[in-house]
């Protein structure tokens, strides 16, 4: 039987590569009896959803803008080139 430590690594890797059938079976058997790791798996899937949304620029709400100072500096650099 895999330990929670091993399962957490495999659950993470399942987001990065295709697990072997042996690994998948091991994870599935463990998750069947382990609530903690089942929650961990859901949370990893949530983390991916959140990060993808973050990446897509939902962050626009945070209003990231080039400062006027940076803008001036870049304009000067462009003029000099």
């Amino acid at each position: 039987m895999l330990t929670c430590k091993e399962v957490s690594a495999l659950v993470s890797q399942s987001l990065d590569r295709r697990l072997s059938w042996r690994e998948r079976l091991g994870v599935r058997l463990h998750l069947f009896i382990c609530d903690a790791c089942t929650r961990f798996k859901w949370q990893m899937e949530f983390l991916r959803r959140a990060t993808q949304r973050f990446a897509r620029g939902r962050i626009e709400e945070v209003s990231l803008q080039l400062s006027d100072k940076a803008r001036d500096r870049i304009l000067r650099a462009l003029k000099q080139d």
Binding site: C4, K5, E6, D35, C37, R39, F40, W42, Q43, A50
Partner: peptide
């Protein structure tokens, strides 16, 4: 290899 503190349930993530 057990969790020292199990991940807690997240309410409506």
């Amino acid at each position: 290899g057990h969790w020292r503190t199990a991940p807690s349930p997240w309410n409506d993530p």
